[in-house]
Write a protein that binds this DNA or RNA. Structure first.
Length: 413
RNA sequence: GGUAGUGUGCCCGAGCUGGCCAAUGGGGACGGGCUGUAAACCCGUUGACGAAAGUCUUCGCAGGUUCGAAUCCUGCCGCUACCA
């Protein structure tokens, strides 16, 4: 394939971005023909990647495909502050070992999207230059920003308004992140829209350091499976890139319909016309469109076969209008975790319903198990358990079910 | 440093003229129903132990008053606002 023209690159790169500061600069920089250094910051505290992370990673990959270099910054030093965008208060200080381990996991997972070859990928830790800074260095850094400008930042502004505390050191975060850009001479920095301020900071600092300011491209935040909040691990509304095909399928099928379009746009390469046909057309059956979405995503992180298999399993388990095979056995998912039941829990082949429930599903007390049973939420081989008192007969291979989608395969010991 | 206010269960937030408070309400979460395991909607549950009666632990922390305290008093700590 011949080298794509500046214009082709530009069109592809801009697509899907929320903002680009500025497109003209990007065009000029691409036109120079040199390999651009495209920066992406990574927080070493959250090693499990979600589809939310992949939105930015996919963009980075596009740059790589055009021959540019991805520069991953591991924010091992900035993690000590904690990004003020997050709500979490004090962050535990990470040991170098933890950072290393987290970074490895990250890379392993990011590798599903990125090209990790040396000529297109570089990793740096920001402790490399932040750690040795003297107080004078920090003063110099701080003198480049005014309080007023800092307070413009939405998270600071809203917190201020809400009467929430803001700590001085938090204001250092954007500066440090910007300083990273200076140190690695970034041409472009990518990030979610919540990073806009931080990334723009880099432009100012670079300008002051007589560097051409980086182009800042921000990508939309992926809404989580709950349909409301930004996808994040802490909110539990995420799909992890390491999720099994079955899990991915189930989670994607459960997203609210209106989210389909953005998922297609941000997470897949599906061409616009097809997206329109699947999501906007009145003929499109939303269920089928969503299945298509789920399969497309699984293909990206697993394989085509896995995608098809997951779809079939889903149909079978949830009886999506198939041949009426509704007996209990045939509607079980494939991968039910096996739970060993300790011998002392069993008496004459019977167990106390409360104990097994707590044991199999890790409930936090017998009280919640009791409630679940009272609410007809616990089933043994498809039969609802009605009385928490009556011991139940149990044998290896039995299926205990909690709610709609938690299962455990009994294994007596 | 001064003055005023405030600190409640996963979160927000009532209660605070003492007992009827394990503590109203909302959100979230969970379970059931309806569905396309979507959304919306309806019903229910949401401190621990107990079959239950009941018992225990919980309203920033530590003491005190009282038959009895989330509620009153004292000290401490945190947060907020105004003033300095």
């Amino acid at each position: 394939m011949s080298k794509p023209t500046t214009d082709q690159q530009l069109q592809t790169l801009i697509r899907g971005c929320e903002h680009c500061f500025t497109t003209e600069e990007l065009e000029k920089r691409l036109d120079s023909g040199k390999q651009l250094r495209v920066k992406l910051g990574m927080d070493p505290t959250a090693p499990d990647l979600t589809l939310g992370h992949t939105v930015v990673l996919r963009k980075l990959r596009q740059f790589q495909d055009f021959g540019h270099k991805a520069v991953l910054i591991i924010g091992d030093y900035t993690a000590r502050i904690g990004d003020p965008s997050g709500k979490s208060k004090t962050r535990p200080m990470l040991t170098p070992e933890q950072v290393k381990q987290n970074a490895e996991t990250y890379m392993k997972q990011a590798g599903k999207v990125l090209d990790l070859s040396d000529e297109k990928f570089e990793v740096r830790h920001n402790s490399e230059w932040l750690e040795p800074m003297s107080c004078a260095d920090v003063l110099r850094l701080m003198s480049q920003m005014t309080v007023a400008r800092m307070m413009e930042r939405d998270t600071f502004a809203t917190r201020q308004k809400a009467g929430k505390e803001i700590f001085m050191h938090e204001m250092l975060y954007p500066l440090m992140q910007g300083h990273d850009s200076v140190m690695i001479k970034a041409d472009v920095e990518l990030g979610g829209t919540d990073q806009t301020f931080n990334n723009l900071c880099g432009r100012d600092l670079q300008r002051n350091a007589n560097q051409p300011p980086q182009i800042v491209m921000t990508l939309p935040l992926l809404v989580g499976t709950d349909g409301k909040l930004k996808m994040s691990k802490s909110m539990g509304n995420y799909v992890a890139v390491t999720d099994t095909p079955t899990d991915m399928f189930g989670k994607v099928m459960r997203i609210p319909d209106p989210l389909m379009r953005s998922y297609f746009e941000l997470l897949t390469d599906t061409p616009e016309e097809k997206i329109a046909a699947l999501t906007d057309s009145p003929d499109a059956n939303p269920r089928d469109s969503k299945e298509e979405l789920a399969k497309t995503i699984i293909e990206l992180y697993h394989s085509k076969e896995a995608a098809t298999a997951a779809a079939q399993e889903f149909k079978r388990v949830h009886g999506g209008g198939t041949d009426g095979a509704t007996d209990f056995e045939s509607t079980l998912p494939d991968d039910i975790p096996e739970v060993a039941i300790p011998a002392d829990m069993i008496k004459d082949g019977e167990v106390d319903p409360l104990s097994v429930t707590v044991h199999c599903f890790n409930e936090k007390s017998r009280g919640v198990a009791k409630r679940l049973i009272a609410e007809s939420g616990i089933r043994l081989n498809g039969e609802v358990i009605t009385d928490p008192q009556t011991p139940i007969k149990i044998k290896t291979g039995d299926i205990l079910q909690r709610g709609k989608r938690k299962f455990a395969k009994i294994a007596l010991q």
